[in-house]
Design a binder for these strands. Structure first.
Length: 283
DNA sequence: GCCCAGGAGTGTG
DNA sequence: CACACTCATGGG
């Protein structure tokens, strides 16, 4: 199945390339390929948005892609609103095509639990390994991410052999603490309640809870704070302190689209670290 | 070999 | 509240 989705602005690399989601791969021909639910999808930039190719191309895949890329979001308006922050504005200009994605709640929860104290290539590898061993087959090369019920049957030791390290215990415990109805209920919670409930899970602290709120549950006001964000806050705003303090600063300063501000700061801080350059104006 | 990674949990001052 | 320590391992 092949079709075009009208969407903009959109840069696939900025959106799928690093950190929000971990299973999209850039192919040699410039297309991005990855599993979405139980189907394989290839995305290629087109004039009006993206050209989508899906296998096996079951019904609903169009909606799934649109939902994943949050096609309904007015990203231009969000950028204009956040650009009122003079510190943020220059960085936004280099990230016009970044969209926050909406990922599956369960896959997102596990992914960011695995992300603790690991780098992005390793996170991807852990997720690929547990998908390959325990997920339903989509193609010869790729399996879907395993459901809660699937993963619950896996002994902790076997998860450990997938290279999860100490994270195996948390994943195993969360499988037993949670089921699909819990996730469905959590979708209706307010932001603070959702955050509190996520944090009550073993292996989920402030940062993971905020990542899962933002990407998995689609709460654009969520603002995950990691080491990169601490560096950015100190360098650009002269702010440091506890997670709660920085979180409040972000909420006050960036409002309902704080998640987007976080992504702009995150990408630019990493760029700054690697290139020694800065797209933001100094304080 | 060395360093650090999109942290969390636990204990202590 | 802040800090220190441990956790288990693999990319760069």
């Amino acid at each position: 199945m092949r079709f075009e989705l009208r969407i903009g602005p959109l840069d696939l690399g900025q959106t799928l390339g690093c950190g929000q989601t971990f299973r999209w791969r850039l192919q040699h021909d410039g297309a991005w390929r990855g599993p979405l639910g139980d189907q394989m999808v290839m995305l290629r930039k087109s004039r009006a948005g993206v050209e989508v190719e899906a296998f096996p191309g079951r019904r609903g895949i169009g909606d799934a892609v649109a939902q994943h890329l949050r096609a309904g979001d007015d990203v231009g308006a969000i950028q204009r609103a956040l650009s009122k922050d003079p510190v943020l504005a220059p960085g936004i200009r280099s990230m016009r095509g970044l969209r926050i994605v909406k990922t599956d709640e369960w896959e997102c929860l596990v992914s960011f639990m695995l992300a603790t104290y690991a780098n992005i290539p390793r996170i991807s590898k852990m997720i690929e390994t547990i998908s390959a061993r325990f997920g339903e087959r989509i193609t010869d090369e790729t399996n879907a991410f395993p459901s809660i019920a699937c993963l619950r049957k896996v002994p902790e030791e076997e998860l450990r052999r997938c290279g999860l390290g100490y994270r195996a215990r948390y994943v195993h415990a969360v499988c037993e603490a949670l089921d699909e109805t819990d996730l469905a209920r959590m979708k209706r919670l307010g932001p603070e309640e959702l955050r509190r409930e996520l944090k009550s899970l073993p292996g989920v602290g402030d940062k993971v809870a905020d990542c899962v709120s933002l990407f998995g549950f689609g709460r654009l006001e969520a603002f995950p704070i990691d080491v990169w964000m601490e560096r950015a806050f100190w360098r650009l705003y002269g702010q440091k302190g506890s997670y709660e303090k920085l979180r409040r600063f972000a909420a006050d300063r960036f409002g309902p689209y704080a998640g987007y501000a976080q992504e702009y700061l995150y990408f630019n801080e990493r760029r700054y670290a690697s290139a020694g350059m800065c797209a933001f104006s100094q304080e």
